[in-house]
Amino acid sequence: MPKFMFLYRGECKRQQELSPEQMQQAMEGWRDWIEGGKQAGWLLDAGDGLKPEGRVLRPDRTVTDGPFAESKELVGGYCMIEAADLDAAETVALSMPDTGGNVEIRELAGQSMG
């Protein structure tokens, strides 16, 4: 079965504006989604959130602080699922709670080439 990675982009700013009550609701929504996915078997890895700061290794082997991408482009988290095809993966993505940003649905290349 093809595997897909969901990349959550640009969620940081909106989360700072959530009220505590909204945060709790969001968190509980996520927990239910993850539990549901594990039980049904399509969630391969619940993934994690990513801290905004880090370092970037450039092609010339220099290392800088970063990534400092536009905040709406910044990858803020990920998870891994499996689904029959891109349409099925989209259906799974639509069942996710609000990430506050975009969810990029990308199929793992090695799996589908095999």
Partner: peptide, 16 residues
């Protein structure tokens, strides 16, 4: 405090 709550939300939704 808001930042701490956001950190909790992000950490707990994945790790319980």
């Amino acid at each position: 405090v808001q930042e701490a709550l956001v950190a909790a939300m992000q950490s707990w939704r994945q790790g319980g």
